[in-house]
């Protein structure tokens, strides 16, 4: 969230939990395999978003467990997503104080880099396991995510930006 004068309502645990459920749902949609290269990994995107905005609630542990869930859902090697997600969550957390006040377009670049890194980690793991390289198109989703970041952040903030009651 870039610097602004507006006071935000707190994001509750319930809201964060629901957002992750929705992200997993989107990742499980049946058309994912056809649009695969162009649809970013929404769970990873959301992990970065919450690590930047709610660093005390969403961290490495949360990313790890979501990663294990994604591994089971996709039926690939257990631990592949878990490793990638924990590392990107860590990198987002290390510079959180700095990144959180960047304008959205700069955050988008960071998010894109982190998503690319997570995919690179997965490619490394799979190639160690002896799978062939899947082609550069695999990374297109992360680049697409960079364009998605500003509208996505605004959407997520819509709930928090609602005016607080005037009791204060």
């Amino acid at each position: 969230m870039p610097i602004s004068r507006q006071l935000l309502r707190p994001a509750g645990v319930g809201f964060i939990f629901c957002s992750f459920i929705v992200a997993i749902l989107i990742n499980l949609l049946p058309w994912q395999a056809t649009a695969m290269n162009f649809s970013p990994d929404f769970v990873a995107l959301l992990i970065i978003y919450w690590a930047l905005n709610q660093p005390r609630r969403v961290g490495v542990a949360c990313a790890f467990f979501l990663g294990v869930l994604m591994d089971v859902a996709n039926g690939n090697i257990l631990g592949q997503h878990a490793l990638a997600y924990s590392i990107i969550a860590y990198l987002a957390l290390v510079r959180q104080r700095q990144l959180a006040i960047f304008p959205f377009w700069q955050q988008a670049l960071i998010a894109c880099a982190l998503l690319l890194l997570s995919q690179a980690i997965m490619v490394c793991i799979r190639s160690i396991m002896g799978e062939p390289f899947v082609g550069w198109g695999y990374f297109a989703g992360s680049l697409f995510a960079a364009f998605l970041w500003p509208p996505f952040s605004n959407l997520m903030l819509m709930y928090q930006r609602k005016d607080a009651p005037d009791e204060l």
Binding site: N27, L28, Q32, V134
Partner: peptide
């Protein structure tokens, strides 16, 4: 049910 998102397999 669905097509796996994993592009490797």
């Amino acid at each position: 049910l669905y097509n796996s998102r994993d592009p490797f397999a």
